[in-house]
């Protein structure tokens, strides 16, 4: 079989993921659910994680979007994620590589580091916030 016959997915089926641990970007298929970072060899989850009820976890780590629904109540040491949507309650420190959206009835107790933040009027927040666009861009080299 000729080498040119290898089935490589077209570029639009791929997207760039920034490693949560080493900040380096790499291209992966859109349907990939988990992978190993080719730079730091750490395991990365790429799926979105919805929380619809009370959940206590040591840490929540995914390159996808974490969503805490209205009835969700997440207690954790830290959340490392590609984006965060909070409509319920979160207690723990958050480092998001994408925007953090906070609904009007949401509650966040903990430090938040993210490139962008959108807060609905009525949300309850308590913690140290570091919101700058350069966060989560990743290293180019």
């Amino acid at each position: 079989m000729a080498q040119g016959d290898i089935n490589v997915p077209p570029p639009d089926d791929r997207h760039v993921v920034v490693c949560l641990y080493c900040d380096k970007p790499q291209e992966v298929g859109r349907k990939t659910q988990s992978m190993t970072c080719k730079f730091c060899n750490k395991s990365l989850r790429l799926v979105d994680m919805p929380f619809k009820a009370y959940e206590a976890r040591r840490s929540i780590e995914t390159c996808g979007v974490v969503t805490v629904e209205k009835k969700g109540n997440v207690v954790t040491d830290r959340i490392l994620c590609g984006g965060l949507v909070v409509r319920g309650k979160v207690k723990g420190n958050i480092l998001s590589r994408g925007p953090v959206m906070v609904g009007p009835e949401a509650e966040i107790k903990g430090d938040v580091t993210a490139p962008a933040l959108a807060v609905g009027a009525g949300a309850v927040l308590d913690g140290k916030y570091d919101i700058r666009p350069e966060i989560g861009k990743g290293q180019t080299t």
Binding site: P99, A118, V119, V124, D126, D130, P133
Partner: peptide, 19 residues
């Protein structure tokens, strides 16, 4: 009591928001 942050705003510091 209330905070509204538009996407793109830069915010560094301690935040206490709520009734």
């Amino acid at each position: 009591s209330r905070l509204v942050v538009d996407e793109g705003a830069i915010l560094v510091g301690h935040v206490t928001v709520g009734p």
